[in-house]
Nucleic acid binder design. Structure first.
Length: 256
DNA sequence: ATGTCTACCACAGGTAGA
């Protein structure tokens, strides 16, 4: 079973890229982020024609997450993180697919730091930590995948010294991510490729992709039951090279 | 500091986010 996460940066603008990638990569489950479309502008017909059932949580202009499942409809288990009823942002969806519980998330960017956006990021992280504490011990495999907006370690940043004050690499944020690992979650790609420089995002500016000046910010965290079945993990860099593509590349894992 | 790209709303391009 192949489970992918892909920050599409606008699902309607990227629809040709997304459909091409679905066709070439044939993932079983996909978590999408940054739909940048209101609820009624999700391209359901095109996704369905590609063979995927979908649930989504849209939002005008920003954010927006979806879960796709090949040949079936994801069974939604949660929409939004618990812990703050005033939070209107569409950043978390959870569903059961084929016996696997999948969480798809789009963690707040948090820049500029310090500031209210950064505070929101830390609060959101606290709520995620609480939800993931509830999920880690499940008997079923659990995969929490998405754009975490965190580079966990220096190996995950092309120029770590330039990012120390940024909300994606700040000590508080790396500590929050480390607390998830302390709960027992496994960073799938890093576990299978402990020493490799692997990026999932490259800025549009200044030829970042051509220079491979990237970041690893899209992750799959696996509970122990899922980790036992982990067989492979990788980044579909080829899709980042396409015309009119997202600034992120799709990231995937395979479970036996 | 800069750079590039997106969507919205609405029909131009200003604005905000990443």
């Amino acid at each position: 079973m192949k489970i992918a996460t892909y920050n599409v940066n606008g699902i309607n603008g990227r629809l040709p890229v997304l459909l091409r990638w679905l066709d070439e990569a044939a993932p079983d489950i996909v978590c999408l982020q940054e739909l940048k479309a209101p609820q009624d502008r999700f391209p359901q017909a095109a996704i369905e024609a590609a063979g995927y059932g979908a649930i989504w949580h849209g939002q005008s202009r920003w954010n927006g997450v979806a879960i796709l499942a090949r040949g079936c409809d994801p069974l939604e288990t949660r929409r939004g993180l618990p812990g703050d009823p005033t939070d209107e942002q569409s950043r978390y969806l959870e569903a059961a697919v084929d016996g696997v519980l999948v969480g798809g998330l789009y963690l707040p960017n948090g820049n500029p730091r310090p500031g209210p956006r950064f505070d929101y990021k830390l609060r959101w992280f606290d709520r995620l930590e609480a939800r993931m504490a509830e999920l880690i011990g499940m008997d079923a495999p659990v995969v929490i995948a998405g754009d975490y907006n965190v580079m966990p370690n220096e190996l995950d940043v092309h120029k770590p010294e330039r990012w120390v004050d940024d909300a994606l690499f700040a000590p508080e944020v790396r500590a929050a991510y480390a607390r998830l690992l302390d709960q027992g979650w496994i960073d799938a790609l890093r576990t299978l490729h402990p020493d490799e420089r692997i990026y999932t995002f490259w800025h549009y500016f200044r030829g970042a992709f051509e220079r491979d000046a990237g970041l690893r910010i899209d992750h799959h965290l696996l509970n122990p039951v899922a980790a036992k079945r982990l067989a492979g993990a990788g980044v579909d860099r080829f899709a980042r090279a396409w015309e009119k593509t997202s600034d992120h590349a799709p990231v995937w894992i395979t479970l036996d």
